[in-house]
């Protein structure tokens, strides 16, 4: 197993800590007087997204986490989970509920996602920054009132609810920023 010493610590390095894969967010070298040197490290637990503040004696090593990110196409979901395919190897992976918790409301067929694998299993999924989805439910449009700048909720085909301008109608295709959930524009009329 590969180990990383504290002097290799830098943001983005993936380590195994207390059994969970983590990514270093910040690494600070601290040394009191002529005393023991420490590394004060902020890490993101890649299983649950939580931030950890930990301290290690300088010179200590932690095992590397076998974590890598691959671009994959979203295929479908079923009772087993959410299925993705690696575009280069055609290998298929099934992600569990926790891995897709933050992105499932944006996933529709063939979306290109970044899937983080830990020991070959999907750990988390990043949706494309922008997706195009169809409106399945919203209050009737108020034509001619676009200047007022009002907004209303609209439900999309994946179940996500976004705030949209009043003129949007059922069947319209919208472009949405998945990082903020913000409406970007109408790309097709229903």
């Amino acid at each position: 197993m590969v180990n990383h010493s504290t002097n290799e610590f830098r943001p983005g390095l993936k380590l195994l800590l207390d059994g969970d894969p983590c990514s270093i967010v910040e690494n600070e070298f601290v040394k009191p007087g002529k005393g023991q040197a420490f590394n004060r490290v902020r890490l993101r637990n890649l299983c649950n997204g939580r931030i950890w503040e930990r301290t290690f004696k300088s010179g200590e090593s932690l095992p590397a986490a076998d974590v890598l990110e691959r671009e994959m196409s979203y295929l479908y979901s079923d009772t087993q989970g959410w299925h993705f395919m690696d575009d280069s190897s055609y290998e298929q992976y099934c992600a569990g509920e926790q891995a897709v918790a933050e992105v499932r409301q944006w996933l529709s067929g063939q979306d290109r996602c970044m899937v983080m694998l830990w020991n070959g299993e999907p750990l988390s999924v990043r949706a494309p920054n922008f997706v195009e989805l169809e409106v399945t439910q919203t209050e009737p449009g108020l034509r001619g009132d676009t200047a007022a700048g009002g907004v209303k909720p609209a439900e999309l085909s994946t179940g996500a609810v976004v705030r949209v301008p009043l003129f949007i109608e059922i069947g319209d295709r919208l472009r949405v920023d998945t990082r903020t959930g913000a409406y970007q524009g109408r790309v097709g009329k229903g």
Binding site: V30, P32, G33, G35, Q36, F38, T55, K57
Partner: peptide, 9 residues
């Protein structure tokens, strides 16, 4: 000494 350094820090 290490414990003192750690707790002080």
């Amino acid at each position: 000494s290490t414990l003192l350094d750690f707790l002080f820090t």
